[in-house]
Design a protein around this nucleic acid. Structure first.
Lengths: 204, 204
DNA sequence: CCGTTCGCTCAACAAGCGTTGACTCAACAA
DNA sequence: TTGTTGAGTCAACGCTTGTTGAGCGAACGG
């Protein structure tokens, strides 16, 4: 090799990425408390002290590893919202990024993860609520969101048999009428801001 | 005082109950990993060694504290099942026993709790599935069950604003059409409601 | 080329954990 | 009374955890 195979800055970036990848995998698999700095370091092929040197503290490592989880843009459209939700859900159960899994896994036991997820879900409820409108918009939005959370947990973290047996299409199909009912709101009291057109009920 | 105010057997039962109550509260609030034997002992006004003497190991204490969670009888009736589910859910969000909260809180990080909840939910899915029948019975049952789990988590453990604002009645009311849609199954393929649940579809 | 920087390791620290064995003392049976 | 049982405490063990500071050696800049 004419030049050094790895410059100093390059090596730094690579090892940092390796540590972060190992951390993500372990946090996603075991959660915050059961994941040790030593285990992360071992998985990354590195000394535990180096992890500290790079991230300062375990909490900081977690923050960096779980950064950018669970916050997606949400366009607004009352009827197509159902399809958007189902599509989003489809991606979730097909394979959630480890970044999000780490957050999900830890949200019930790690205070910081709990607060982070709570805030993210609250925002998503708010946005969904604005999109659907109507009397109990916030509540119905929350029900859709928590349903998706429950389904994701049941599928990805608890690995319920009945869910693993089904394909993504079967799941979204079975869920469609339920989501429609929730997002449409109480019959006769809707206020459609966009198109009152009848949903075609066709596949995408 | 003719006899001692507290006999030996009586004292033993009382302190054991006090320890179990403290353990339940802490496991429910912090989960398995963040709950220490020392904290349980302190909350019960007792030496940590006594907790070990009573329960042998932390895992055993958790098993005893979380015993009998999440396993309720489930009668079968295709349409009234919706009401039963909603009623069950109403109890859950009104106030889940600490026994169940401990299990719920720890199910994503503690392997034994994870397996326990997984098994319990699988059983519930199975029973619900037999009750509703139809083509995708197992899947639809699983969707109802995971929805309830997600709602319970969002309400009790994450304390989402939109859910805490609503009354139990509002929640069950808003959820009714969604559950009906899920439990009724795909339109045109349902069993006659008069006959008792008889899943002619068999397994799979 | 030499001196400095810096990625990285090694060994260790203090704190907290679950767990244990010896001990104290009141309740009990004789 | 006297001896025994057993609830409860005390101090400590061994281990793991997150975290730190000294030191080594290769990459760097002049």
């Amino acid at each position: 090799m004419s030049t050094a195979p790895t410059s100093r800055a390059e090596r730094r970036r690579q090892t940092e990425a390796r540590i972060l990848a190992a951390a993500r995998a372990l946090f996603a698999e075991r959660g915050y408390e059961r994941t040790t700095i030593r285990a992360v370091a071992a998985a990354a092929g590195v000394d535990p002290a180096l992890v500290m040197q790079y991230f300062g503290a375990k909490q900081e490592l977690f923050s960096r590893a779980a950064q950018g989880a669970d916050d997606r843009p949400l366009p607004a459209s009352p009827e197509q919202l159902t399809e958007l939700m189902l599509a989003t859900l489809g991606m979730k159960i097909s394979g959630l990024p480890e970044t999000s899994l780490a957050m999900l896994r830890s949200m019930l036991t790690h205070p910081e993860a709990n607060e982070s997820v709570r805030a993210a879900l609250d925002r998503q409820v708010e946005r969904t609520s604005e999109a659907i409108g109507g009397p109990d918009a916030r509540l119905r939005a929350a029900l859709v969101v928590t349903s998706m959370v429950g389904l994701t947990i049941g599928h990805q973290l608890l690995q319920l048999d009945a869910l693993r047996e089904a394909t993504t299409e079967q799941i979204t199909e079975a869920l469609r009428p339920a989501f429609q009912a929730l997002l449409a709101g109480p019959a006769g009291a809707e206020d459609p801001p966009g198109a009152p057109a009848q949903p075609a009920a066709g596949d995408d």
